[in-house]
Nucleic acid binder design. Structure first.
Lengths: 118, 118, 118, 118
DNA sequence: GTGGTCTAGACCACC
DNA sequence: GTGGTCTAGACCACA
């Protein structure tokens, strides 16, 4: 992972966790890497990782067993999907449509770029 | 203009100028509002507007005539379109495709949401 | 550093950073002084230093790690050399040649003045 | 003439006059264009041209006959040469030598670029 | 009138 | 601790 993006690192880490859940790499009840493990492997300050985990815990996607570690919560997949979908439709799509309009790009153009990129 | 978004105001102002160029409201050689005029009309500090203008000048979209004001540069339309298109394709589309993949949304779904929103 | 020159301070600071890179005092990946550190040591307002850093970041010579500081970018030496060389050849040399022509000075004259000045 | 350079326009106009004197296009006693003529031909505000003429008059390079126009002063060639030479040697050459040092350019390199440019 | 630079100080998010 | 943004206000050179 590279962290030169503008988005806050703790949010990038949060997205990384969510992606693994959505891709079913980590499922309900699975233990995810400890704060220390993850912070070492991606070379980020543990405080920052902790903040990500706190963020996800607040949203009921993971939970903590004291002294043992963090685990994927019940129905995490559904919750994550819902969370992402809402924010995607309400926050990203309107901007997407506006940009497409300005740049005179159609859905067909997008499809074409999509195919090229694979 | 409204400044509720999280994006920096000076970038929002930059986008506003670009939009006017893309919509052909301002064309090559046209004078755009002076820093002071714009700062008064949108109730933003002149320093902030200047920052926007400097940003666009750096990218060759507008230029300055000493003591007179800022003007839309030669081929500003093409440059703006190119600039926005590049950043859209390289920065936004990969994220879009990834998100669509994760959320299992197709281009047809997008189109449907698009039609609803109009 | 002294700021008697007419050139804007933020550009002088930019040149100072570039010089250190060209002189290999700071190399790829090195952390450069934080905005606050530098602003204190050279007695300049932090905003002014930030402007210099933003200017160099725009040109890909330094980059920022959030909350940590600014670092010398990959191939910063080459980029800096190229940038300075281009601007020197395109902007300064034509004027130099024209002036030499007007003042009837030869390259030999320049060399002589050079030797005297050392 | 194009006036997008950073140097003040009135100084650019001054240089233009001096060049014509150094190139012996205008000699001692010749009448130079009136402020109005010049301001129209180069599309610049008459105030700006007036400032240039005042600047050169202050330095004894041109003089004014009321109601008639501006004329090249006695020994204007020598004065101009001296003026330019001084400022060139004291102000420009030190910077030139420093830049050459940083960019590792020799006088031979300069000569080569010079030959190419002709 | 125009832009350009600089200072001072505040507030914020982030590491 | 780090940078990033914004405001306010001053001063300057220039057209």
């Amino acid at each position: 992972m590279e962290f030169r993006e503008r988005q806050a690192i703790y949010l990038q880490i949060g997205d990384y966790i969510c992606e693994n859940i959505l891709r079913k790499k980590w499922e309900q009840g699975d233990r995810i890497p400890s704060i220390r493990e993850l912070s070492v492997s991606i070379e980020v300050n543990p405080n920052t990782v902790m903040r990500s985990y706190g963020y996800l815990q607040d949203r009921g996607i993971i939970y903590n067993k004291r002294g043992i570690g963090y685990f994927v919560a019940e129905n995490a997949y559904e919750k994550t999907l819902e969370l992402k979908k809402q924010s995607f439709i309400k926050r990203e799509l309107p901007r997407l449509f506006n940009t497409m309009d300005l740049l005179e790009l159609s859905f067909e153009d997008l499809k074409a770029i999509y195919r090229e990129s694979r």
